[in-house]
Write a protein that binds this DNA or RNA. Structure first.
Length: 595
RNA sequence: GGUCCCAUAGCUCAGCUGGAUAGAGCAUCUGCCUUCUAAGCAGACGGUCAGGGGUUCGAGUCCCUUUGGGAUCACCA
């Protein structure tokens, strides 16, 4: 909560105690921003106080308002509408806030690590059998932005990435390559490694579907057909070989995964992300067995007749869950238990965030509960940042059917759209080719990140390609444009603005709106971090840019004749540019100097 | 069937812990570049906040219920 608000709350309590001899010790009071249609900065709703005052809403509000004005509280005027007491805070409050903070390039941002706590954020954790797609982009944008938010709130951040690099799905790509690959390589095919491997994953799915259809036509049920399909058996055999350490299988696995990692690294580079720590399922998948033994000993798990090991969570409203197969191999959740233990061993983590889609809500509920039952002390600091699926106007995305929006393709489209748009507007004049390309990247990626991050993470979102390349209105480029526009004004001013308190006492309505918006920035950053929701910052940045553009149109800056007013407006412009830049940075979006 | 999530303007989304006449953008229509970047600004049009009950001085927001959509409940990951 902003400082002024808690002061007004305390004063309101004092007013109630003084006027009505009320016991305010346990009273919870809320202060709201005054609705723009009324005069005032903050509003106190007096309905909850009527029992204390024993008077009508209007009279109660008026009495408290008069008390505020009479008692040197920083409130200069008030008005009453029904039960709403609108308070006008003295201009000097806003001006001194402004003077104290306008040149601060890090306003609202805590120093990295100042909180003395470490948070680990795991994203994007892809499978290594296909390239990244639009869903991964939402994951990556959320993960990297939340990381920035945590940093801005004083946490030390560790970015981790878990590669699901083994198992049935990986074997599918491998098998298809083995059967139909003819020794093709990313170099020979001139294609990114992850895309090449992904083609074989699709190839497998296609061939498998044919086999199943054929069997089904022969009279088998779909379920039986899937089990009896020769490819199913071949994949299982390959998995057994892999687990046994069969040299040829392991070699192929190493080679193909290597291709995928090379491809991912290129994509990561375009995205500007770099994990600090990688975990590989292939390294940890066996480690979970020790924990299973521990759980069995503690009586948390139990063994069934066939040798499989389970946990019964029915008392917690969940189901029974297998943690070790009858053949002694681990399942997904056992591996996640192992990874959690490894993370704890590797880092002293105070908080651990998993950025994973909401289709795994149940999985994480179970995982966290198991860790808690096992008595892991870190179990309470785990958080599943669950986000909704990205949908397309054409329907759902399915990797196996190739109906996904590929991450690399999409980024390329965004960047070339930015190029086209920029050239149309004639804005590349005076830029070197390198600068121009950098700008296209900044704008294209900014548009994409903003488009995805402005939506509440927990909600599923519709990705309309046509809307995403629109750079007008509520978009990243609109905010970037506002920043570039301000920088242009500041360049023309030639020297840094100097605003001295008291030099300029009058504030225009659009200036005041802007200052109030700037004042709200730190609270917004805090709220976004606490709720793991970058959308708060995204929407804030939009309103801030809007406020500035209104100010820009209504008032002159450089041409202002009154020197104090000119400096004030330049300083306000500087302050706004700084905060826009910070906001965009929290979203992983760059703020261009010109565009 | 059980559990969880979602439903706000033609479309995409805001709406913070319940508060005043529910806000933006896109789309459609109107104005504004010989003045600091028009990727901008101003205005018009557009809503029974899915339906129904309840709690409250007050409900888009909380509770119940119906409907519609999605996810999940694997010895897949």
């Amino acid at each position: 909560m902003a400082a002024i608000e808690s002061i007004l709350i305390d004063k309101t309590k004092l007013a109630l105690a003084t006027l009505y001899s009320a016991d305010v010790a346990n009273l919870v009071i809320k202060i709201e921003h005054t609705n723009p249609q009324f005069e005032g900065d903050y509003t106190v709703n007096v309905f909850p106080f009527l029992k204390l005052s024993g008077k009508k809403p209007e009279d109660t509000a008026a009495e408290i308002g008069e008390w505020f004005v009479a008692n040197n509280t920083g409130v200069t005027a008030f008005n009453v509408v029904k039960g709403f007491l609108n308070l006008v805070v003295e201009n000097s409050f806003w001006l001194s806030f402004f003077s104290a903070n306008y040149p601060d390039a890090h306003f609202g941002i805590a120093q990295n690590g100042s909180k003395g706590q470490t948070v680990m954020i795991e994203y994007p954790s892809p499978n290594t059998n296909k390239p990244l797609h639009l869903g991964h982009l939402r994951n990556i944008f959320l993960g990297s932005s939340v990381a920035e938010l945590m940093k801005a709130n004083g946490y030390h951040v560790v970015h981790s990435c878990l590669y699901n690099d083994r198992g049935t799905n990986i074997c599918k790509s491998m098998l298809a390559y083995q059967k139909w690959g003819k020794g093709e390589t990313p170099e020979s095919a001139n294609i990114k490694g992850d895309h090449l491997v992904g083609q074989y994953y699709v190839k497998f799915a296609t061939e498998y579907k044919l086999q199943v259809e054929e069997l089904a036509a022969g009279g088998l049920s779909k379920e039986d057909a899937e089990k009896k399909a020769p490819l199913t058996q071949e994949v299982n055999d390959m998995l057994v070989k892999w687990e046994a350490g069969d040299e040829a299988t392991r070699n192929l696995w190493q080679i193909m995964n290597g291709w995928v990692y090379q491809g991912f690294d290129i994509t990561y580079q375009t995205l500007g992300i770099k994990p600090d720590k990688y975990y590989y399922e292939s390294d940890v998948y066996n480690l979970g067995k020790e924990t299973v033994a521990e759980g069995l000993e503690k009586g948390i798990f139990f063994k069934k007749d066939d040798g499989s090991i389970w946990i019964d969570l029915t008392a917690d409203g969940l189901d029974q869950k297998v943690v070790l197969r009858s053949n002694g191999t681990t399942v997904y959740i056992t591996q996640d238990i192992a990874v959690a233990n490894e993370k704890e061993k590797d880092y002293k983590i105070d908080k651990s965030v998993y950025v994973v889609g909401n289709e795994q809500d149940y999985h994480f509920k179970v995982l966290f509960l198991i860790l808690k039952k096992l008595g892991r002390k870190y179990a309470d600091s785990l958080y599943h940042l669950s986000y909704g699926m990205v949908e397309l106007p054409t329907g759902k995305m399915k990797s196996r059917e190739g109906t996904v929006v590929d991450a690399d393709d999409l980024m390329e489209i965004m960047i070339s759209s930015a190029k086209q748009k920029t050239e149309e507007l004639g804005k590349i004049e005076g830029l070197s080719e390198e600068e121009a390309n950098k700008l296209f990247h900044t704008l294209g990626m900014g548009a994409l990140r903003y488009f995805i991050l402005k939506v509440d993470p927990k909600k599923k979102m519709m990705f309309n390609p046509e809307e995403s390349i629109d750079f007008n209105g509520h978009t990243g480029p609109f905010i970037q444009y506002t920043h570039a526009r301000i920088r242009s004004v500041l360049r023309k001013a030639e020297k840094a603005p100097v605003h001295t308190e008291g030099g300029h006492a009058e504030i225009h309505a659009v200036e005041k709106a802007l200052i109030k918006r700037l004042y709200a920035f730190p609270a917004t950053v805090q709220l976004a971090a606490e709720s793991y929701d970058p959308a708060h910052v995204a929407n804030y940045a939009y309103f801030l840019a809007s406020d500035y553009n209104r100010f820009y149109h209504e008032l002159t800056i450089l041409k202002e004749e009154n020197a104090a007013a000119r400096e004030f407006r330049l300083a306000l412009s500087l302050f706004t540019a700084n905060v826009i830049k910070q906001s965009l940075q929290l979203l992983g979006v760059e703020a261009p100097e010109r565009m």
